[in-house]
C-alpha cells in the first residue's frame, strides 16, 4: 500500500511539474518558433536543448575560411586580431568574445597552413580558455601537433570542434551559457569581417553571396542574444547586431523550388537540389556591411 501511495505521489508531482513547465516565457516561445518545436516540452528542456540546438546549427567559420582561401590564395595576417592583444582582455565578456574571434582566426590560419601564426594564436586561446576556467577542454598539445602537420586538417578540425562542443556543454551545465554564445558571436563577427573585407577588395560574386546569406545566421544569433539579455553586455552587442540587421533588410533572398535529382554513385546516395536561389546583394551593401562590422569588431578587440 505504501508503494501505491508513493506512486500516486510521484504521478501527482509529475503532473504539477508538467503543468508548471508548460507556462513558457516569451523567449522560449520565440526559440520554439525559430526551431519549429512542439510547445509541450518542459521549460528547462526548452532552454538548454533548444539553445544548444541553435548554437550547433550555426555554420562553422571553417566553411567561410575555405571559400576565402579559394578566392584569395594569398594569406593576409593583417586581417586578424593580433595574438598579442590577449593581454588587453580582462572581463569575461572580452575573454569569451575574443576566444571566439581567435578561434575563427585560427581556422583561417590553418586553411593557409601558416604554422608559426597557428602556434601564436593557440597560445592566446589557451590563456583565454584557462582564464575562463575551461582550459581543461582545450587540448593544446594535440592541436599544436596537428597544426604543425599540413596533412591533418580534418583531424585538426575534429579536435577543435570537439573541444568547442565540450566547452559549450560545460558552460551550459554551469549556467554560463552566455559565455558560450559570446564565443560563437565573436567567431561569427570575425568571419563576416574577414569575408566582407576580402569580398570588398576582390569583388568576388561567390563571396558577395556568402556575405549576403549571413542574413539567415544573423537572425539566429539575434534570437540567442535576446534569450541572454540579462547578461549586462549582451543588450549592447545585440543592439549593434540589430544595426547590422537593418542593412541586411535590403538584401533579398528568393528561391524557385524544383524537385531534387537522386542517383546512386559508387554506393553513395547523391541528391542534387535543383532550386534556383538568388541572393540580391550589391557592392554598396557589402561595403556597408564591411564598414559596420569593422566598427563593431574594433570595439570588441581593442
Amino acid at each position: 500500500m505504501k508503494l501505491i501511495k508513493l506512486l500516486k505521489f510521484l504521478i501527482a508531482i509529475t503532473a504539477v511539474s508538467v503543468f508548471v513547465s508548460g507556462c513558457g516565457s516569451s523567449e522560449d516561445e520565440a526559440l520554439e518558433q525559430a526551431m519549429g518545436k512542439d510547445s509541450t516540452i518542459s521549460k528547462s528542456e526548452i532552454s538548454s536543448d533548444l539553445i544548444n540546438e541553435i548554437i550547433k546549427s550555426i555554420p562553422s567559420p571553417v566553411e567561410m575560411s575555405s571559400l576565402i582561401r579559394e578566392v584569395e590564395p594569398k594569406y593576409n595576417g593583417q586581417l586578424l586580431n593580433p595574438a598579442a592583444n590577449v593581454g588587453n582582455y580582462t572581463t569575461n565578456f572580452q575573454k569569451a568574445v575574443n576566444l571566439g574571434i581567435y578561434g575563427t582566426d585560427l581556422g583561417y590560419i590553418n586553411m593557409y597552413n601558416e604554422k608559426q601564426d597557428a602556434i601564436s594564436y593557440l597560445n592566446s586561446m589557451t590563456k583565454l580558455a584557462e582564464d575562463m576556467k575551461i582550459g581543461q577542454f582545450f587540448d593544446y598539445n594535440m592541436i599544436k601537433r596537428l597544426a604543425s602537420n599540413s596533412n591533418n586538417l580534418d583531424s585538426l578540425l575534429y579536435i577543435t570542434t570537439s573541444n568547442y562542443d565540450k566547452m559549450n556543454s560545460y558552460l551550459q551545465e554551469q549556467n554560463r551559457g552566455n559565455l558560450s554564445l559570446l564565443m560563437l558571436t565573436g567567431g561569427w563577427i570575425e568571419a563576416l569581417y574577414i569575408a566582407s573585407s576580402v569580398a570588398e577588395k576582390d569583388n568576388n560574386p561567390a563571396l558577395y553571396e556568402r556575405v549576403g546569406e549571413q542574413k539567415i545566421v544573423l537572425d539566429q544569433l539575434k534570437i540567442l542574444l535576446d534569450f541572454y539579455k540579462t547578461d549586462p553586455h549582451v543588450p549592447e552587442l545585440n543592439l549593434k547586431l540589430k544595426d547590422l540587421s537593418a542593412i541586411y533588410d535590403s538584401i533579398k533572398i528568393t528561391t524557385e523550388y524544383h524537385p531534387p535529382t537522386i542517383e546512386i554513385v559508387n554506393g553513395v546516395k547523391m541528391v542534387s537540389e535543383n532550386n534556383k536561389t538568388v541572393i540580391k546583394v550589391s557592392k554598396k551593401e557589402v561595403d556597408q556591411i564591411f564598414n559596420l562590422v569593422s566598427t563593431i569588431r574594433q570595439d570588441l578587440i581593442k
Partner: peptide
C-alpha cells in the same frame, strides 16, 4: 523531406547533398 538514405529497403551509409538554397 528532401532525401533519405533508405532506398528500396537498402540503407546507404550516408547522403551526399548538393545544396542550392541557403537555409536551415
Amino acid at each position: 523531406v528532401l532525401a533519405t538514405n533508405l532506398e528500396k529497403g537498402t540503407y546507404y551509409p550516408g547522403i551526399a547533398y548538393k545544396c542550392s538554397t541557403t537555409g536551415i
